[in-house]
Amino acid sequence: MWYEILPGFAIMTACLIIPGVATSQIHKLMNNGKEKRVARVPWHWYMIARDERLSGTGEHYVTKGLENIH
């Protein structure tokens, strides 16, 4: 009957969802809980480079305030 496909469908759905969720959680863990920054246009690349320069760490997700500007 039609309900015999449900276990297979559930397994396939889980196998497709788990990697996406796990990847986002691992990325969040590696970036100290901050979201991934995506640069789609040149202005975003400029802002990421500015953040890296101002933070002095070489990591674009570590931002500091005015106390770090020399």
Rank of each mutant, 00 (worst) to 15 (best):
K64R: 14
S24R: 14
L16D: 09
G33T: 08
F9M: 11
R40K: 15
D51V: 08
G8H: 00
L16I: 08
N68T: 04
R37Y: 10
G20H: 04
H70R: 14
E52Q: 08
I18E: 05
H44F: 12
Q25C: 13
A49G: 12
W2S: 14
G56Q: 02
T23R: 15
L6C: 06
K34A: 11
Y61M: 07
G56D: 05
A49K: 13
H60K: 12
C15M: 15
H70A: 09
I48W: 03
G65L: 06
R40L: 13
E35R: 12
R53W: 06
N32W: 13
Y3K: 01
M30K: 09
H44W: 10
E52Y: 11
L6K: 03
T63K: 07
S55P: 04
K64L: 12
T63Y: 01
W43S: 15
K34N: 01
A39P: 02
I5T: 13
N68R: 09
A22T: 06
F9R: 03
N32S: 13
H44Y: 10
V62A: 03
M30T: 11
Y46T: 15
T23S: 15
L16Q: 11
R53V: 07
L29Q: 05
E59W: 13
P7M: 00
I26D: 10
N32H: 09
L66C: 12
R37A: 15
T57M: 05
P42Q: 13
G8E: 00
T57G: 01
I17T: 03
L54W: 03
I18P: 01
A39V: 09
L54D: 06
